[in-house]
Design a protein around this nucleic acid. Structure first.
Lengths: 204, 204
DNA sequence: GTCTATAACCGGATAGAC
DNA sequence: GTCTATCCGGTTATAGAC
């Protein structure tokens, strides 16, 4: 492995764990098994190194609508695939969402500029939804609210795990893990229940 | 206003905005209109001052189930009141949730110890839910998942506003504010739709 | 490319006058 | 209680040898 790769791996670990303000170049150097001076040789400054880690982190957790959108025929299959896929991703990167959000709140101007205008293909989702609303099989629902709510349900437990462990699970690690494992099914059922139009009743 | 109160107001502002690592005693002093030495006279250290601000911030946003629980007869009215009340609270304190979560992730051991075991009366909610499940008017749902999901739907847009503005609203402040104002109704409808048992259809 | 040594600065904390 | 001046450790960044 090249030195540059070692540095990036170390920087990833330290920045994600400590945030920009809490991270120390010395700690990154130790983690990479080199010394501070070499960090500045490869990346001019703490800022430059951070920008690289932040940008790649944002890419990693930017919701990947595209893949799920192309392959799925209706909103229900799409949501099912999306929720499962995103949860699986976050299992590998549990601390990245909190890192990205924290840094975006610290310096929105600079960092939003850095990631550019990475919009989401909300129009495709809108048309997918609209068809079923017209057919009457889906309750009228805003695509923006639906997608923000879906992401909230998926991501929030990863961001807020210490507070959830405290107020809901009395610091019981075991019960919290069990909760997380049940989460996928709960979310999918929750969302589908929320947006599916009820069948007509006998009196209607 | 006493000097101590001025300091606390300034510290609140700076700590919530910048976090522990990003906050500077000098900035707090400036904000309070005094000098650094006086900060240390009133609060021994940055740590002590921070602990006070963090503890009170946690109290502020700890979900106030108790009030809504005592007064409401069924889970639907309870959720309606809870969502509305919490959103109204967060309008006044939009940056506090991200602050508390950020700090809890930075040093869970110490800060969880600080806030003690402030559990939530989940048992009252469970019994409230169970009655309606038995009657068949509510889908079987775990109280923990329901409450975590409810809080996620409420709090997430406040934590993640920069990222939402970027990927969903193309930095359009106007459209984002409109979105936030619609949010209460969406959340309540979403949750009630998700947990309400469908009426029986003609074929059953 | 990699290292040691050090410059230059910053930030929390304290001493001591008023 | 409040201030000015200062200490001291830590942090980023660079100079220069190998």
């Amino acid at each position: 492995m090249t030195t540059e790769e070692q540095i990036l791996i170390a920087a990833r670990k330290v920045f994600v764990q400590k945030g920009y303000d809490g991270a120390r170049m010395q700690e990154i150097a130790n983690e990479a098994g080199i010394n501070k001076a070499l960090l500045h040789y490869y990346f001019r400054s703490k800022d430059k190194l951070f920008e690289q880690i932040f940008t790649e982190s944002f890419q990693l957790i930017r919701p990947a609508f595209e893949s799920a959108l192309g392959s799925e025929p209706d909103i229900r299959s799409f949501l099912n695939l999306f929720v499962g896929g995103y949860l699986q991703l976050l299992e590998q990167l549990p601390y990245v969402p909190q890192f990205v959000i924290q840094e975006l709140n610290r310096d929105p101007q600079k960092l939003v500029g850095l990631i550019g205008k990475q919009k989401i293909p909300i129009e495709s989702i809108k048309s997918m939804i609209q068809k079923e609303i017209d057919k009457g099989t889906l309750l009228p629902v805003s695509a923006e609210h639906l997608m923000v709510s879906t992401i909230a349900l998926i991501v929030f437990p990863f961001i807020a795990s210490p507070i959830l462990k405290t107020v809901f699970f009395n610091q019981d690690e075991e019960r919290y893990n069990h909760f997380i494992h049940e989460r996928r099914d709960h979310i999918v059922n929750f969302i589908l229940g929320a947006i599916t139009a009820p069948k007509r009743t006998q009196n209607e």
